[in-house]
Design a protein around this nucleic acid. Structure first.
Length: 433
RNA sequence: GUCCCGUUCGUCUAGUCUGGUCCAGGACACAGGAUUUUCAUUCCUGCAACAUGGGUUCGAAUCCCAUACGGGACGCCA
């Protein structure tokens, strides 16, 4: 039975690198129908463990990862918080004592290394040999156990079969292999996954980098499926050029031996592209639900909101932009974009807006088709391009030169609102000419 | 400094194990163009890489060695 674990330290943040490590563990467990364990490594008692743990649990759930054993779900190998496993650590320390593998110095307990090269059986990198030269502390002089010790004891006690973790731990693995052997426990298989490098600059991504935290993406309304999909592709690929793919398909194909050896640089542009693709392909019902919750501040009629959302889906790249993208639909006091105006003014916008306004009075049916015909006739009669009307009127109605499909926008706004806004624009833009 | 890992377009990658089908494929980004409605949509086109040097071989992106470069680890942090 494959048993893997993700063992974060509750630092108060859940960063992208940790999320990817968790994801690869989860994918592998689901692929082989094994057990995915979440273990909280809270040996550093100084910190606020409850809140910090909640952040990890919440962000993992947001990304769609569930765990078979761990906090809130329990399991036969608990407790799953290291702070509650002192008794177990004491027992394992005794084993090392009986085998004469440890000694005390300055109040701390040291582990005696063998000074022989240790084999790290790595599924991604192949066999790696590394020798640990110096004895190291496993219990501090204040009586608390150290990471290397608790990590190995827990992996042994929880019968972890595969240790999937970041490559920054590869050098630690020689310590850990020695500990497993000294404890008389089977040495697990290892899979050291490549690191995620900063988008700009050198070195691995750290908590302080922009966009390094999962919560940043939640706040900015990224779709979790998109972030997850992107993370799957950082160091792994289906090898057939597919990129946007359902998680079930990733689970079906995922295997440790297909993970890349080299580090990957985080590319926020590609993530943004993926998020846009997910937004565009969202089922309309889901798009409505998500959109409505974000637009609740506008206090607009539900039907109007639905209509606005419907015409915006194809243009929207991120829900983080939704509020701004549609604000003028609901707010009569929108501003006119001065930069856009300077590009527009050579098209005689005030003249076109006036003509458009007069013409709308002549059509009974305020529909896309009629409006399009109307603009076509106007343009022909005046010898200008239809775009001149569209640009000018869009600006009058929204203060911008970009937005959803023009005729759809006009129809949804409705005659009354359109007329009111065009009149206001004529008065204000007159001064700008 | 010591030890460990890595090196294909600017970025993510396919191809490397099982050398010839690769004058290296896809995607993002970027640059042009098209859609007689803007574009932050869609489509098309273009740009662009096997780190370097040796070796093995009829033949090397693919195997071996060295160098360079990048990354990581060397805590009574995790």
């Amino acid at each position: 039975m494959v048993r893997v674990r993700f063992a974060p330290s509750p630092t108060g943040f859940f960063h992208i690198g940790g999320a990817r490590t968790a994801l690869f563990n989860w994918l592998y467990a689901r692929h082989v129908e094994g057990i995915f364990i979440l273990r909280i490594e809270d040996t550093d008692r100084e910190r606020h463990i409850e809140e910090a743990t909640d952040i990890i649990l919440s962000d993992m759930r947001w990304l769609g990862m569930d765990w078979d054993e761990g906090p809130e779900v329990g399991g036969d190998y608990g407790p799953y918080f290291q702070s509650q496993r002192d008794k177990i650590y004491g027992e394992y320390l005794e084993i090392l004592g009986k085998k004469d593998k440890i000694y005390e110095r300055d109040g701390a307990i040291y582990f005696r290394v063998s000074q022989e090269p240790q084999l790290i059986d790595d599924l991604i990198r192949g066999p790696v040999y590394r020798m640990e030269e110096k004895d190291f502390v496993i219990f501090r002089s204040n009586g608390t156990p150290v990471f290397h010790f608790v990590n190995v004891v827990d992996d042994a006690a929880m019968e972890i079969s595969h240790v999937i973790r970041g490559e920054d731990h590869l050098s630690n693995s020689s310590k850990h292999v020695e500990l497993f052997k000294a404890l008389g426990a089977p040495v697990p298989k290892f899979a050291h996954i490549p690191l995620i490098l900063k988008t700009n600059g050198s070195g691995k991504m750290s908590k302080r980098d922009v966009g390094a935290l999962v919560e940043d993406y939640r706040k900015n309304q990224f779709l979790p499926e998109a972030l997850r999909n992107y993370l799957c592709l950082l160091g792994w690929s289906p090898k057939d050029d597919r990129e946007i793919m359902p998680i079930e398909e990733v689970i079906r194909l995922f295997d440790l031996c297909d993970i890349n050896k080299n580090n990957a640089r985080f590319d926020d542009k590609k993530l943004a592209y993926m998020n846009a693709a997910y937004v565009k392909n969202m089922p309309l019902e889901q798009f409505f639900d998500k959109g409505k919750s974000l637009l609740s501040d506008f206090n607009a009629e539900a039907h109007y909101v639905d209509q606005v959302l419907t015409i915006c889906q194809e243009k929207l790249r991120s829900f983080g932009e939704l509020n701004h993208f549609v604000s003028y639909f609901f707010d009569e006091n929108f501003d006119y974009d001065k930069g856009a105006w300077s590009d527009l003014r050579k098209r005689d916008p005030v003249l076109r807006i006036g003509e458009f306004l007069s013409a709308t009075e002549g059509i009974e049916d305020f529909s896309e088709q009629k409006l399009e015909e109307m603009v076509g006739k106007l343009a022909e009669a005046r010898g200008v391009k239809t775009g001149d009307y569209i640009h000018g009127v869009r600006f009058a109605l929204s203060g911008r030169t970009v937005g959803p499909s023009f005729y759809k926008m006009v129809v949804i706004m409705g005659r009354e609102r359109v007329v009111r806004r065009l009149r206001r624009a004529l008065v204000e833009l007159e001064k700008w000419q």
